[in-house]
Computed example of a mutant assay.
Amino acid sequence: MWWQSVIGVVAGLALVWTGLVGCLYYLGRKQDNPTRFSDVLRLLPDVLVLVRRLASDRTLPRGVRVRLAILMGYLVFPIDLVPDFIPVIGYADDAIVLALALRSVARIAGNEALERHWPGTPAGLLTVKRLANIPNSISR
């Protein structure tokens, strides 16, 4: 049935989201100025808005939109590197691909584009920049 596929996709996205929140919370606690857990919970919706805004920004290089399209295609496509029915590691490949794609997009787009399109808090933007190894200057 088609609804089983929808439930599978939603469950997969929920697991990837949970893994990312856990990683971001852990990284935030390791920093000198730890990120509050509420900021970490808010980070994923902000990242999704950032991805949508970056994908629709025609002033950015075409490679940004191509990478985002490939990322969405990979996440939607039912065949993965590691099958999703394998507990825990089944969704790990999705989380890794997501993190690598966001890191690549963030590095290409640069500071100015990230700051212009970021909808969340400065602390959330700082966390995204740290994950992408981008200098931490925030001009907000």
Rank of each mutant, 00 (worst) to 15 (best):
Gly12Leu: 02
Ala123Leu: 12
Leu131Asn: 01
Trp17Cys: 10
Arg65Cys: 01
Asn136Asp: 15
Met72Val: 09
Trp17Met: 07
Arg42Lys: 13
Ile7Gln: 05
Asp46Ile: 04
Asp80Gln: 14
Arg65Met: 04
Arg65Gly: 05
Trp118Leu: 09
Ser56His: 12
Arg130Leu: 13
Asp84Thr: 04
Val128Pro: 01
Ala95Lys: 00
Ser56Cys: 13
Thr18Lys: 04
Val66Pro: 03
Arg116Glu: 08
Tyr91Leu: 04
Leu68Asn: 02
Lys30Arg: 15
Val88Asp: 08
Arg130Tyr: 13
Gly8Cys: 06
Asn136Thr: 13
Val16Thr: 09
Ile89Ser: 08
Asp39Asn: 15
Asn33Met: 13
Arg52Ile: 10
Ala106Arg: 01
Arg36Glu: 14
Arg36His: 11
Asp39Glu: 14
Leu75Lys: 01
Arg29Ile: 13
Val128Thr: 02
Val21His: 02
Val40Phe: 08
Pro45Lys: 15
Leu131Lys: 00
Pro34Phe: 06
Leu102Met: 14
Trp118Gly: 01
Leu50Val: 06
Val128Lys: 01
Arg36Asn: 13
Phe77Thr: 12
Pro78Val: 02
Ile7Asp: 03
Val10Cys: 02
Lys129Gln: 15
Gly63Asp: 08
Leu20Ala: 06
Leu43Phe: 15
Leu20Asp: 00
Phe85Arg: 08
Asp57Ala: 07
Arg103His: 05
Gly28Ile: 00
Ser139Phe: 15
Arg42Glu: 09
Ala109Pro: 07
Lys30Cys: 13
Ala55Ile: 08
